[in-house]
Simulated assay, not measured.
Amino acid sequence: MNKLVRVLATGTFDILHPGHISFLEQAKALGDELYVIIGRDANISNKPKPIIPEDQRLLMIQSLKPVDHAILGSLTDYFEPLQIIQPDIVVLGFNQQIDAVKLKKDLNDHGFFPKIVRLSEADTGSVDDMYSSRKIIAEVLKKRCLKD
Rank of each mutant, 00 (worst) to 15 (best):
K49F: 04
I84M: 12
K147S: 09
K3G: 02
E33H: 11
Q97G: 00
A100V: 01
K49T: 10
K143Y: 10
D68S: 14
R118P: 00
I84C: 01
H20L: 08
I15S: 03
I21P: 02
D41R: 08
Q62N: 13
K28V: 04
T76D: 13
A122V: 11
S22K: 14
K47W: 04
E25K: 15
E25Q: 15
P53V: 09
L24P: 04
L82Y: 07
G73Y: 06
P114T: 06
D109Y: 04
S120A: 11
L141Q: 13
M1D: 11
V36T: 02
E139N: 13
A138Y: 08
K47M: 13
T76E: 14
D14N: 09
P18I: 15
R6F: 00
L64A: 06
K135T: 09
R134A: 13
I85W: 02
F94V: 00
L4A: 15
M130W: 10
P50Q: 05
D68L: 03
Q83A: 13
L141T: 03
F112N: 05
D128K: 10
Q86S: 10
I52C: 12
A27L: 06
S133V: 06
G39C: 10
Q62H: 06
I52W: 02
L119C: 06
F23S: 02
I52H: 00
T12Y: 01
C145Q: 10
